[in-house]
């Protein structure tokens, strides 16, 4: 709270300085999924004029199944993107010149949800991950698959993995016994579609050591090198947007729902409200030693890297110092 107040007091001075420089260059920020509360902070930074106050002319590009945010930035389609840390590491390892300039979501929201009683006849009650062995479980493809592989390996479960796409219809039709969910999204979707909490068992991945930080802001090495001040201003404004989202949730939800409605997405306000509350819990540290708001430290990075190296197909990961450049977040922290 003190942080946000001081930020609000100091920022106008900086914005005056930034505005003097020149006509602002248009900047594009690409999401890695459809509009939803997961990106509320960016919307608020834009809608409340925090980017403008920094002298930034930012536009937000929606993500989705057809958008790969890191590639978009690497190919010059945008200056900044939101991406999962695991995804960004992989892309960088594959040669994309990504650098992380802020770590927004510091907690892992990946879960496995299983039917508590998967068999109609047999009286098996799923209570531990290893009970999923031999059972069909849907998990996401590609970069989202990694955390689950790590989870199953570390828990000694060997389920039959079935690819999971945009819906949980197979799980809902009891075609599989478990599925992958995000705590802030699919888990609540299940509850909104008639699944009762007492009928399912939830395995949050972070409780099993798979504690991968999630959304961060990335740009290219080149852009960061040429526009360090601009990047710092962008991160400042973004984090301010998140603080605003935390403090004014209903107004934030209005902004989210406006975008959701414009995109005609089949979702509803209670779901977006759930998502906003859960994502905010993953962004702002519950205790001071949990993590640092907006920042990824080396220890967190190296732990995530180890998980990816052990369970993924990656042979090496980028060095922290060259990949995570978070002075901007440090600015925020120091204030």
């Amino acid at each position: 709270m003190l942080l946000s107040v001081t930020t609000a007091l100091i920022l106008p001075c900086i914005s005056v300085k930034a505005a003097d420089t020149a006509t602002p260059r248009p900047l594009r920020l690409v999401m890695h999924w459809d509009h939803q509360s997961q990106f509320a902070g960016y919307y608020m930074a834009l809608d409340k004029g925090f980017y403008a106050e920094e002298g930034l002319d930012v536009s937000i590009i929606r993500g989705g199944p057809d958008v790969r945010s890191c590639e978009t930035v690497a190919e010059g389609g945008a200056e900044f993107c939101v991406s999962m840390l695991s995804t960004a590491i992989e892309k960088r390892a594959l040669g994309l010149p990504m650098v992380g300039i802020a770590q927004v979501v510091n907690r892992c929201n990946f879960q496995v949800v299983a039917w508590k009683k998967p068999d109609a006849v047999k009286g098996v009650v799923i209570q531990r991950p290893d009970q999923l062995s031999g059972r069909k479980v849907t998990v996401w493809e590609e970069d989202f698959r990694l955390p689950y592989e790590a989870f199953f390996e570390s828990t000694g479960a060997s389920p039959k993995l079935v690819p999971q796409y945009y819906t949980l219809s197979l799980f809902m039709n009891r075609g599989v016994d478990a599925c992958a969910t995000m705590h802030y999204n699919e888990y609540h979707w299940l509850l909104q579609h008639g699944v009762q909490e007492e009928d399912i068992t939830v395995f949050p991945l972070w409780q099993y050591g798979v504690d991968l930080p999630e959304d961060g802001i990335y740009t290219t090495e080149e852009f960061l090198r040429e526009n360090p001040a601009l990047c710092r201003a962008f991160v400042r404004a973004t984090l301010r947007g998140w603080e605003y989202a935390r403090d004014y949730r209903e107004e934030t939800l209005d902004s989210v729902m406006q975008r959701v409605n414009e995109a005609k997405l089949p979702t509803n306000r209670p779901h977006m409200s759930w998502m906003l509350n859960v994502i905010l819990e993953s962004i702002f540290p519950p205790t001071e030693d949990s993590w640092t708001f907006g920042k990824l430290n080396k220890r967190q990075y190296e732990r995530a890297s180890r998980i990816l190296l052990r369970h993924g197909s990656l042979k090496s990961v980028p060095a922290y110092d060259s990949f995570i450049i978070m002075e901007e977040a440090a600015d925020v922290e120091s204030r």
Binding site: M172, L191, Q192, H193, G194, P266, T267, N268, R269, P270, H271
Partner: peptide, 26 residues
Amino acid sequence: SAQGVYISHPIRAFEMRETVYSVAES
């Protein structure tokens, strides 16, 4: 629908977006 999603509702905005459970939440 079987999952509680409104297929037809006098409030058109509910259709395919709201479920009986989300309305209960609201």
